[in-house]
């Protein structure tokens, strides 16, 4: 459900990040509202991962600005935040789902420990309650209760991603970044995961920025799509408008290169 809100959750204006004298992405502008899922599509090297890194404050904002509305309702220029403040956002308001689960999980800590860690990081100190919440979230991502004490190292790729999603939602974030959350998985597993993401996002009213090279992923889970090429945004709009009536030459190329299902 899309909540009504007077101002956007994320407001990006002319933002760019450069590596040395080359820009990874540049001149990016958009607003993201609570409850909206924004897909960032493009091929490798298009700057979509740089954009995600910049928005999530893993990379600097070298030009332009990114404003974020904190839980207290304050529009904050992310570039002015200190490291502890950014890390507090990571802990309490933002999730980040990595393409490779090994980057987002502790592979040799149990699934329960992985999901419970954000709670402990936020000061939870009651084992029974932490475990119960971890168990609840593992169930929501369709992982059987008897796997809670097993480590992700023993899980399939799809299960790992689901544990990662649980770990990133358990603390009630307001904004979740996802970097190619389903690539590298079997097609049937992908569909299941996308469906799960879609229903969780809708139930929780989350705002999501999802980076994907797969237009089908964008179509299935996003409200809006932003197309990137060579570090620039070449087109953005409603996802079905961008995919059904692409305006930019590059978007037409992307759309025409996918197989119709």
């Amino acid at each position: 459900m899309i909540a009504e809100s007077a101002s956007p959750l994320l407001s990006v204006s002319g933002a760019g990040h450069h590596y040395g004298n080359r820009f990874g992405c540049r001149g990016v502008s958009f607003d993201l509202w609570p409850g909206e899922v924004l897909a960032v599509v493009g091929e490798s090297g298009s700057g979509k991962s740089t954009l995600l890194g910049m928005l999530s404050q893993r990379l600097n904002i070298d030009e332009g600005s990114v404003h974020y509305q904190t839980a207290e309702g304050q529009m904050t220029d992310l570039a002015t935040l200190s490291e502890p403040e950014v890390r507090r956002l990571w802990r309490t308001e933002w999730g980040f789902v990595h393409q490779n689960a090994a980057e987002g999980l502790r592979m040799h800590v149990s699934a329960g420990g992985n999901v419970g860690e954000p709670l402990m990081a936020n000061g939870a100190r009651h084992y029974g309650k932490i475990r119960a919440r971890a168990a609840d979230w593992l169930q929501r991502v369709e992982i059987l209760a008897d796997r809670i004490d097993e480590t992700p190292a023993t899980f399939s790729g799809g299960m790992r991603q689901r544990v990662q999603i649980a770990r990133n939602l358990v603390f009630g974030p307001r904004l979740v970044f996802m970097d190619e959350p389903t690539s590298g998985l079997d097609v049937s597993v992908q569909a299941k995961l996308l469906d799960l993401i879609r229903s969780l996002v809708a139930d929780l009213g989350l705002a999501v920025v999802v980076v994907t090279h797969d237009l089908a992923v964008a179509r299935l889970i996003s409200h809006r799509t932003l197309v990137m090429q060579g570090g620039q945004v070449v087109e953005q709009g409603l996802t079905d408008r961008v995919l059904d009536d692409p305006q930019a030459a590059y978007t037409q190329l992307l759309v025409s290169s996918i197989l119709k299902g």
């Binding site: 709009g237 409603l238 079905d240 408008r241 059904d244 009536d245 305006q247």
Partner: peptide, 9 residues
Amino acid sequence: MKMVYGSYQ
């Protein structure tokens, strides 16, 4: 129809 719905610009 699609222009009204917004799928076409």
